[in-house]
Nucleic acid binder design. Sequence first.
DNA 1: CGTGATATTGAATATCCTCAAGATTTGTGG
DNA 2: CCACAAATCTTGAGGATATTCAATATCACG
Lengths: 221, 221
Amino acid sequence: MTVTPPLEACVPRPAAAALARLAHVRHLARGDTILFEGLANQVCVSVAAGVLRASKATEDGREAIVGLHFAGDFVGRPFAAHAAFSLSAATDAEFRSYSRPAVETLLREQPDMAQELYRRALDEIDNMHGWMLVLGRQVAGEKIGSFLLHLARRFDAGESFDLPLTRAEIGDVLGLTIGTVSRELAALRRAGLIDTPGQRGLVIRDRAALAARTGLASAFV
Amino acid sequence: MTVTPPLEACVPRPAAAALARLAHVRHLARGDTILFEGLANQVCVSVAAGVLRASKATEDGREAIVGLHFAGDFVGRPFAAHAAFSLSAATDAEFRSYSRPAVETLLREQPDMAQELYRRALDEIDNMHGWMLVLGRQVAGEKIGSFLLHLARRFDAGESFDLPLTRAEIGDVLGLTIGTVSRELAALRRAGLIDTPGQRGLVIRDRAALAARTGLASAFV
DNA sequence: CGTGATATTGAATATCCTCAAGATTTGTGG
DNA sequence: CCACAAATCTTGAGGATATTCAATATCACG
């Protein structure tokens, strides 16, 4: 369950072929935006490499990252005229783009596709439930731990990987400020649970202790 | 968009008939539980009356309410062996129950059903995105305001309705403690924006001012 | 009318934020 | 390959917000 297989691998041959015909491969540099919250919802995408971030903002500029999407994830909202969230590249990324109306047609013609996307939507809901528990009921140190363990799981990269987000963005995910994120990472470093080589590097030195400190959300980790 | 039409009204005749054949009508008293987090996931349900609450808990007993479900909502996780959340009655409630395997069969046989449930799952994701912004980036007073406006919208009951949750449960929704919930409601009462007759009553006296104070999340309200 | 559950309120405290200064890292152009 | 500039990160001090704990009040129900 750590790495999502691409959508094409999860639907029968004809649906996969139809989907492949619609795809346009695109590349993004970190920071590039595909969808803007509130504006026209023109495309759905399938992540090929890198990490995409879905975010929402309040009128006065406070921002929350409401989803991170990794290789294999299908991201988008068929049947919606306007984008409910902004979608941009957290890291340099590559993805396949599908026009939204074409996806909608495909959904009607290929029932297997609708069912597969329904399953994935349910998985995403489960995942978000986990985030909500973290956001509402964990303290800063636990939030950071949950987040790091979640990343390790999604990357399936053993104990060492690059953080796809800046400290400020991690704060936007967890409902913290950049200062608190930095302080809590420093605390984990001092406790010998992690290392943070460079700005983006992250090494989990003691996963068990980190999980224990996280107070769980084991379903989420 | 305030009140969800029942699933049967949103799919073609044959699918609706097939669904109706599977339904078992059930009644719940406040507090009764249908699904237990981590245990067997045996049923999906359609809410007929009252409010259901979906919740998750940490090992040490902290609880988060991750969803509220009103009349017309379809709640459940086809294709999952274990329940990812507990589901119980926030108020006395009535619902139609469907065995999970039967729902899965129906999904395969009735593509329209899969598509309708997919749409609803997407709506729920949008809704949860809104909650995540509230949880992560709003302060207590704003959270309470967002919550009350959200309820008013879902109930479609004008300016006056009964709270389906206790103060403690509202805290579990918003990531607050019972004390803070009570204090913030008192502040809104003192400011003349709401009234709270009895323990469950709620009257919105000045919706515009309440919305302004909420700092928005207008998509969510 | 009494009892248990729920809600209110206060005082003290812990947590996290704000603001700010300084340090590090990354990336760019020479 | 180096130097410099911009971005990002770290850390501290003080303060705001929400929590904890506890006492009291109110409500719902039998």
